[in-house]
Design a binder for these strands. Structure first.
Length: 294
DNA sequence: CCGATTACCTGCACGC
DNA sequence: TGCGTGCAGGTAATCG
């Protein structure tokens, strides 16, 4: 479900509730998600204070006072929600929910925050997400973090950087945008939307964003600008809610109503009125307007 | 190097 | 109501 804007939305919600909170009981309801939980997972979390919560690409980073970082990825269907739990949170008397709607609550963390006790519940039907614990000093060397590309909302990201990253690649723009080793955090929705906003065909060659001398083309500047724009607007809207994405406070995001092409096969292009088409690229659906994306 | 395919797993929409 | 099919926001391995 979650691309960079959704993960950032979750991060902000969790940071509000959990910054400075002390972790109490931790309950895992299975051995792992996509991968097994790390050794002594619950005991390494219990009693720790959450100093801050960060994000790298689509990864959430919970910095603990033990010097370790809880690394979490939501996969396709993961979500965190915060539930006020009163004093029973720290007392460890919380009962694991067992109604059908909550059968995929895989991790339940009790914590004592500034506003009292609460539960942080990680739910993930498809279990493509994962969690790991790593020493803060080792974070950049973690196998899932080490290979990540540039943050598209960082100051360093612009048309020049994008052209340099794509230079020499003979892969379609859409595929290049989904490659987390180049630009990190863009997924299928925002790749489609950014290409539409930049009026660039998803099939276009990524290497073509740089001239023979390596200079950024106007298309490169346009694409970088529109990537930043669409991600920022989506974050401002609280992310997109397609199936069941929720912000940490349980509210849905609102950006999906702003999609110009994603999921709109057959609809008129908001810019030129031509029909939005769906094509397959590297096994994923690409939505685009063949008329005004060139 | 690159693209397509498959896999991981569950839920849901859809057609019949 | 039930069943089969295809598709889904991500990542990774494998095969030509």
């Amino acid at each position: 479900m979650p691309e960079l804007p959704e993960v950032e939305t979750v991060r902000r919600g969790l940071a509000d509730a959990l910054t400075g909170a002390r972790i109490g009981q931790v309950r895992t309801n299975r051995r792992g998600l996509r991968y097994p939980f790390p050794a002594r997972f619950a005991s390494r979390l219990k009693g720790r204070r959450i100093d801050s919560i960060g994000r790298r690409a689509k990864y959430l980073l919970f910095f603990l006072d033990s010097g370790e970082v809880l690394l979490a990825h939501l996969g396709m269907s993961g979500s965190f929600r915060v539930v006020r739990g009163g004093s029973e949170a720290m007392a460890g008397r919380f009962r694991f929910p067992r109604s059908k709607a909550q059968t995929h609550d895989h991790v339940v963390i009790a914590a004592e925050g500034a506003k009292g006790g609460l539960f942080v519940i990680y739910n993930d039907p498809r279990r493509f997400g994962f969690m790991d614990l790593v020493a803060a000093g080792e974070l950049e060397r973690h196998p899932r973090i080490a290979g990540l590309g540039i943050e598209p909302l960082s100051d360093a990201f612009d048309g020049t950087a994008l052209a340099r990253l794509f230079a020499g690649r003979s892969t379609p723009l859409k595929s290049a945008l989904l490659d987390q080793r180049l630009v990190a955090g863009i997924g299928n929705i925002y790749a489609c939307e950014a290409l539409w906003q930049a009026r660039l065909a998803p099939q276009r060659n990524a290497g073509g964003l740089a001239t023979a001398s390596g200079k950024a083309t106007t298309a490169a500047h346009r694409l970088a600008r529109e990537i930043r724009d669409v991600l920022a607007r989506a974050i401002a809207a609280g992310g997109s809610t397609l199936h069941d994405f929720r912000q940490a406070d349980g509210e849905p995001g609102n950006f999906q109503s702003d999609f110009s092409v994603y999921g709109r096969e057959g609809d008129p292009c908001p810019r030129c009125g031509g029909a939005i088409r769906r094509v397959a690229q590297s096994g994923r659906s690409t939505f685009h307007c063949p008329t005004c994306q060139r």
